[in-house]
């Protein structure tokens, strides 16, 4: 078997390389086409900007990606990002800001709002994981319920007297700096996203958790008879996803300098779409970190590129929808076998 594959290797390599990296080619193609039509798209500032916007999306996609690989799904991702953003924002308002949510809140160490956001995400993730692992509720339903619950919770959190529901603004400079500032001329957001990407890569490829996730997604029966604890890994994957949503929420609040209770709405669908574009199989067991990141970049290049090209809002939607389906159609060919 192996010798056979090696013998055929060189001949097949170019076609194979193209097929394996079809998604990267799609991304490059998009960049080139948009750049040709509107050269300013290729400005370094604009490309950096796309990366900056992609950062938050990528972190969410990496969280959902692991769950998808394990044959799960997470519809509550977007709302959890929103919840975390609101919690982070509420704890990072300036002292002199007139409409502070918590009037008497002292200035907290910078880490507190971030940790609070991570905590919110982790909590939601653990709840999702528990419902899926112990109550055996199908992930689609469990996280659908959680999506609704989280929205209720965030609205409850933000809608308090005397101001009532309000956008949270007046965030501290040092907090917004996380999302808008640079370190060594590289935007913080991009650095954080790169770090998260690296960590996720290591977890998925070099830890037991990661390998188990692929195994459970690829063949749950095999995992069970091999003595892999399905509940434990389920819990961990949802918790990890939740943690990333929490981080994404904090970063989103920092980047936009505020938060409202409808932040993050539908982000889960964008993230799932990005993962699927990047070759993550919704039937489990297949997907790479590189693919997820590429998927996110395709999405954001489109988002930005279509605006730069001046495409009307309605056509933007149609084009994006077509690209999602087309990208997956191209990518899935490597798994489709003739019956």
């Amino acid at each position: 078997m192996s010798t056979l594959a090696r013998a055929e290797g060189p001949r097949r390599s170019i076609a194979e390389l193209a097929s394996k990296n079809a998604i990267v080619l799609v991304l490059l193609g998009l960049v080139l086409v948009i750049g040709a039509a509107r050269p300013s798209f290729l400005n370094p500032e604009n490309l950096v900007n796309i990366l900056r916007i992609s950062s938050v999306r990528a972190i969410i996609a990496l969280g959902v990606g692991g769950i998808l690989i394990m044959r799960g799904t997470d519809l509550s991702a977007g709302r959890t990002v929103g919840f975390a953003a609101v919690v982070a924002a509420s704890l990072a308002q300036r002292d002199d800001y007139a409409s502070k949510l918590f009037k008497d809140l002292p200035m907290l160490p910078l880490l507190v709002p971030v940790l609070a956001a991570l905590g919110v995400g982790l909590l939601v993730g653990l709840l999702n994981g528990s419902v899926v692992a112990f109550l055996k509720v199908p992930p689609f339903i469990a996280t659908l319920g959680m999506m609704v619950i989280v929205y209720g919770a965030v609205s409850l959190y933000v809608d308090r007297p005397p101001m009532g529901a309000q956008p949270l603004g007046g965030l501290r400079e040092d907090f917004t700096n996380i999302g808008t500032g640079d370190t060594l001329t590289i935007p913080n957001l991009i650095l954080i996203a790169a770090l998260v990407t690296l960590v996720t890569y290591v977890i998925l490829n070099r830890t037991r958790l990661g390998k188990n996730v692929y195994a459970i997604g690829g063949n749950p029966e095999a995992a069970v008879v091999s003595g892999v604890s399905v509940w434990r890994n389920t819990l961990l994957v949802y918790a990890f996803g939740g943690l990333l949503y929490g981080l994404a929420g904090a970063l989103l609040a920092a980047r936009t300098g505020g938060a409202t209770n409808n932040y993050g709405q539908m982000y889960e669908l964008d993230a799932i779409a990005a993962c699927v574009i990047g070759g993550v199989s919704t039937s489990g067991g297949i997907g790479t970190v590189g693919g997820m990141i590429t998927g996110v970049l395709i999405f954001e290049v489109l988002n930005n590129g279509l605006v730069v090209l001046g495409v009307s809002a309605y056509w933007q939607q149609i084009v994006k929808g077509i690209i999602i389906v087309a990208a997956v159609a191209i990518d899935i060919q490597k798994y489709v076998r003739k019956r």
Binding site: R208, Y214, A215, N219, A222, V225, S226, G227
Partner: peptide, 18 residues
């Protein structure tokens, strides 16, 4: 048979006890 299809042979062998 219980293989995990899109993983390597060795990962299948040591599944559950890497």
């Amino acid at each position: 048979l219980h293989p995990v299809p899109f993983r390597s042979v060795m990962e299948n062998i040591w599944l559950g006890r890497y």
